[in-house]
Design a protein around this nucleic acid. Sequence first.
DNA 1: CCTTTCACCTGTATGC
DNA 2: TGCATACAGGTGAAAG
Length: 288
Amino acid sequence: MPELPEVEVVRRGLERWVSGRVVARAEVLHPRAIRRHVPGAAEFSARMEGRTIGPAERRGKYLWLPLGGSDAILAHLGMSGQLLVVEPDSVPEKHLRVRIGFADGGPELRFVDQRTFGHVLVTRMTHAGGRAVPEPIAHIAADPFERHFDDDGFAHRLRARQTEVKRALLDQSLISGVGNIYADEALWRARLHGARPTATLTGPKVAELLAATREVMSAALSEGGTSFDSLYVNVNGESGYFDRSLAVYGRRDEPCSRCGSPIVRESFMNRSSYSCPRCQPRPEKIAA
DNA sequence: CCTTTCACCTGTATGC
DNA sequence: TGCATACAGGTGAAAG
């Protein structure tokens, strides 16, 4: 379940193994993997053949490889997507969706995705949020590690929302890169229950939550990303693993490391939320 | 316009 | 054993 730290690990792998190389051919093995490339598979391949891959970039959970001329290969790993760099003659993976070969005859880039929630496409670049980004993600907010992320603006917009704080953290148009795992971890660090109405948070509390978000994702990145079901694999096929450092996620009934109370699991948006019932008390419902 | 819900997808674990 | 069900959950379209 790649979130920002895992995607950043992949970006670094692409930067090392793919940037600077010339695309020779691209093959689409599953149409759903390029469903957001409207012109179709043939155009997808033709669009990148002969072009040189630029430095790998990322915003939140999206990755892209500039092709020059304001084009880029944009990728999202979804739930189970992997970008692998492997020898061209290596056995095709069971869920191989797209393969991109290079003119130098070296290792090829493969997009492998069991659940095909992820996707790849070639797109034009545009300008959004003070930065050149691929057109399809112009609506995605800056992530908290971007140089120009606006902390005060984030606090202001979050507090103006009529929703709960975990929903806001997961809203990629407000802040990008945060998924279910790190949202729970950040909320635990900030001692907030996910159901807390955003409008009741003070500015300093939002700043604390933002700091906690950065801390937990920095820690994950320093250890190479998190994985739970072995589906997440970095660009060279090496699995990232970080779950020992998680305080609450997936730890139902285990003692909270701060107060010893058993961690509880609650259903949320057809997902799971984990929290400490003592450190993060659920806000009382206020009658309307 | 803002917020919430649901479809999309498949492998693994669990229950009867 | 076999079948049904729950679960993992990011995204964006659709609904409210």
